[in-house]
Design a protein around this nucleic acid. Structure first.
Length: 273
DNA sequence: CCCGGAACCTGAAGGC
DNA sequence: TGCCTTCAGGTTCCGG
């Protein structure tokens, strides 16, 4: 699942192929992937524009274009952007192909059709309400503390809330809470300042390590060159089946459901209350 | 505003 | 062998 470290990796590794390249064609194999505007208008507005750069905000990729428009791509759960040559056979489940003027194709592969593209004038209509970037210097323990204050929802759900903090999803929320030794069902407002400080440190440590490892390939995530990331080899609890043992204490990892999402934790290292 | 649950979607995996 | 059910989760919507 592409979360912040995976999207960051895609941004970094895709950039050299697309920067200052002109879009010469767009093949919408599955029209629904063009979410806004509709397919025909999407093509006419994108083709001919030159890509000035790529930035990331939360899990969103923002391609700045000449013509003062922004192409926003969200990979959701199973999306990948894979680079190929004009003559390359599209990977299975390719939903769109962006043709560039250097004989390069960008294949938007997405088995489950959750991913989407938008073309907008003002990116803030899409990303304006996102929470802080967890790796920015401005994201401090005090900011995290303010945002968790008086919240009664489970901390696991709050970490996955993009309006509270941007970029964390199911697997990194589990890894972060294990690292901070906090039970996923604790309410946000119940955390002590010491626990919040530890959580803040864990968020940055886990995300930075995953970026160094080029993201986690637990399901359908590929890097732009088609290879896999290695961050999942560092996982302590995420995506472990119930019954596997905690790497710290040996207790069996438990699986519970929080907000309809599979949640893995160690009941000994992350006790209730 | 806050919280929790369902819907969207389709391939993989497990049960019988 | 094959059909059926369940599971996976980022985001959005809806009801309380």
């Amino acid at each position: 699942m592409p979360e912040l470290p995976e999207v960051e990796t895609v941004k970094n590794e895709l950039l050299p192929y697309v920067i200052r390249r002109q879009v010469t064609g767009l093949n919408l194999i599955w029209k629904g992937i063009a979410h806004q505007p509709p397919a025909a208008e999407f093509c006419s507005r994108l083709i001919g524009q030159t890509i000035k750069g790529i930035t990331r905000r939360g899990k969103y990729l923002l391609f700045s274009l000449t013509g003062e428009e922004v192409l926003i791509i969200h990979l959701r759960m199973t999306g990948s952007l894979i680079v190929g040559h004009n003559s390359t056979e599209p990977p299975q489940y390719t939903r769109a192909i962006i043709h560039l003027d250097n004989n390069t194709n960008i294949f938007f592969r997405d088995p489950r059709k959750f991913g989407l593209m938008r073309l907008v004038k003002d990116e803030n209509t899409i990303i304006g309400k996102l929470g802080p970037e967890p790796l920015d210097a401005s994201f401090t323990p005090e900011i995290l503390s303010q945002r968790l204050a008086r919240r009664t929802a489970p901390i696991k759900a709050l970490l996955c809330d993009q309006h509270l903090i941007a970029g964390i999803g199911n697997m990194y929320a589990d890894e972060t809470l294990f690292s901070a030794k906090i039970n996923p069902l604790r309410s946000g407002g119940s955390l002590s300042s010491r626990e919040i400080s530890h959580l803040h440190q864990s968020i940055q440590k886990i995300l930075r390590l995953a970026i160094i490892n080029k993201g986690a390939s637990v399901e359908n995530y590929y890097r732009p060159d088609g290879t896999l990331g290695t961050a999942h080899f560092e996982f302590q609890v995420a995506h472990r089946l119930s019954g596997k043992s905690c790497p710290i204490c040996g207790t069996n990892i438990e699986r519970i459901t929080v907000r309809n999402r599979g949640t893995y934790f160690c009941p000994h290292c992350q006790p209730e209350i």
